[in-house]
Amino acid sequence: MTMPMPPEWAPQEWLWIGFPHLAEEWPGYLARAQEQIAGFANAVAESGQEVRLLVRDDANEARARELVSNAVRLEQRVYGDIWLRDTGPLILGDGSALRCRFNGWGGKYEMPGDERIGAELARDAGLALVESDWILEGGALDGDGTGTVLTTEQCLLNPNRNPELSRADIEMRLERDLGFTRVVWLGEGLVNDHTDGHVDNLARFVAPGEVALPLATGSDDPNAAIYADARARLLDAGLTVHDIPSPGLIERDGLIEPASYVNFAITTNLVVVPTFGSPHDADGVAAIAALFPDRETIGLPGCAVLAGGGGFHCASQQMPRL
C-alpha cells in the first residue's frame, strides 16, 4: 500500500524555492518578483530551516546573491517557470518521490526544463523516483496526512489534462500513486487562476480534518460564490472549516487577480503568508497565525510574484524529514 504524502506541517529537511528569471513572465515586475522571492527565502532560512534557492544561470545566481543572505543555498538548475509546487517531486511517506507527466498547465505555459526538474531534484536528493503516466501538478492537491486530499473539479477533471480519465479513474490513481484513500472534490478555483483552479489557492488543510477557507470581503469580492460552494462541499464532507478573510477585489491593469492568503507556505518553524496591499492583509495574516500556534506566522509582500501567476506556496516544495 502506498504511504501518503506527509502533511506540510510535518518536520522538513529543507525547502526548494524557484527564483524568477523570465522577463516575459513578469513584464515590468521581474525585479520586484525576485526581491519578494528572496525575502521569502531569507525568512525561511532565518527561521532555522535550510533553503535551496534554484537559479537558472550565472547572471541569475549573481542577482540572487545580491538579495539573499549567506544562509540561503543557491543551486543552478535548468527550469522554466518557478512553480516548483507543480513541477517538483511529490514525496511520499516511504521516501519515494512521484513525478507524473507535466504539460504546462494544460498546454498554456510550456517551458524547457519544467518537465524534467522534478525528477532531477528527487534523484539528487537520493529519493527513489517513481514516474507515472498521467498529468498532475502538486498544487492541484492538498492532503492532511491521514489519506484525505482536497482537489478541484475544474483542474483535475479538465479536458486539457487527462481527457481519457473519468473521476473514478483519477481517484484510483490518487490512491495508487499517492496513497489518498478519500478525495474531497471542490468545484471551481479562483477567478483567473492560471492553473485552472488549483486547490492550494482556495482551501488548505491546517490539521487533520481541518481546512482554512476564505470568507468573502466586500460586495465586489469576485470569488464570493466560489468560496460559498467550497464551504458547502467541505461541510458536507464532515470537515471543520476555519474562516480566514479574503483579500477582496485585487486588480492589475484592470484584470482581476487570483489573490489569496491561502497560498501560504508552511515550513518547520514558520508560516509565510503573501500580502497584496489589501486593507484585509493584517486580518488575513492574523487569522492564519491563529491556526498555527506552534510556529511563527508572518506576512510578506507577494503582489509582484502574483503578477507571474502564483504565490509563495506555488514557488516552493518541501523535502520532508523522513
Score class of each variant (00 low, 15 high):
D142Y: 13
P159K: 01
V183L: 08
L174R: 10
G143N: 09
E164C: 04
S166A: 08
E131S: 13
I135D: 00
G147P: 00
L157G: 07
M172C: 13
E120D: 13
L165G: 01
G118A: 01
V183T: 15
D133E: 15
G179Y: 12
D177F: 02
G179R: 06
D169P: 05
N160H: 03
F180S: 05
A168H: 12
T151E: 05
A125G: 04
L141R: 05
L127P: 02
R161D: 03
R161P: 01
D177V: 12
E175V: 03
G179I: 14
M172T: 14
D142L: 01
M172E: 15
E164A: 12
R176G: 11
E120H: 12
T146W: 03
D133Q: 11
D124R: 15
M172G: 14
A128R: 14
E175T: 03
L129P: 04
R173T: 10
L121V: 13
V183E: 07
S132M: 05
L174N: 06
R123N: 11
A128E: 10
R182V: 12
E137M: 10
E153L: 02
G145T: 07
V184W: 11
S166W: 12
T181V: 14
R161N: 00
N160R: 11
N160T: 07
T146F: 05
P163L: 06
A168W: 05
N160L: 10
L150I: 12
L156G: 01
T152M: 12
L156Y: 04
E153R: 11
L121N: 08
E120W: 05
L141T: 10
E131N: 09
T181I: 10
